[in-house]
Amino acid sequence: MLIILKPGQGLLYMKVGTHAQESLEDIIVRKTREIELAGFALWGYGGSTCHPQTMVQPFARSFEQRGQTIYLCMQPMESSHFAEPIRAEEYSVDGLAWQPIPQAINVLGSRYALAIRGLRKEEFDLPLAKTKVALGNSMGSNGDRYIAGRVDKACLEITEEIDTPVVPEPKVHISLVAEIVKPYAVHVRNSPK
C-alpha cells in the first residue's frame, strides 16, 4: 500500500545506512527474513531522540488511537557505523521486565529497537518543512529545522500545509518504509544484569 501524506498523519523519520558494520542491503535482507519467520522484526537504533518509553511508545499509541498506521519512513544515506555487532539477547518494553528475544530475530549493536513489519522499498519525497515534532522537548518544532546536525530521527506529524505547494521546498527522499507495530519500541541488551 502506498503511503499518502495527509495532515495529522504521524510518522517516524529515520536516516539509515550501514549499522554495526553491516550494509543496509544486508540488513534489509535479514530483517525481511525475520518478518517471514517471526511475524515481525526488531529494527535496532540508538541515540536518545527517539527513546522507546518517552518518545516512540506514547507517540505511536496516540496516533494508533486515532486509527492510524504509524509508518517508519527511512532515508538511506552513506554512513559508517563501527559499533560492535553484538547480538541483543533480551528486550524490554519498560526497562524493568526483560524477555528473551526470539531466536529468529537478531538485533545487533543497538540499545533500542522498533517493532516493525511490512518492510518494503517505496520511493517518495517527504517535505520535512511541512512536518512538526509531535512530542518531547522539541514538540512543535518544524521538522526541517529539527533534523539537522546530529539529529537523524524524529517522531513527526504532517501539518496542514502539506497540501500547499511551495517551490522550492526542502525535501528528503524516502526509499524504505515499514509499519510500526506493538509494542512499537523496546530496550534491548546483550546480557542479563
Binding site: T49, M55, N137, S138, S141, G149, R150, V151
Partner: peptide, 8 residues
C-alpha cells in the same frame, strides 16, 4: 546536554 533539543 540534550541531544533532541540542543538549543533549548
Amino acid at each position: 546536554h540534550l541531544d533532541d533539543a540542543p538549543n533549548l
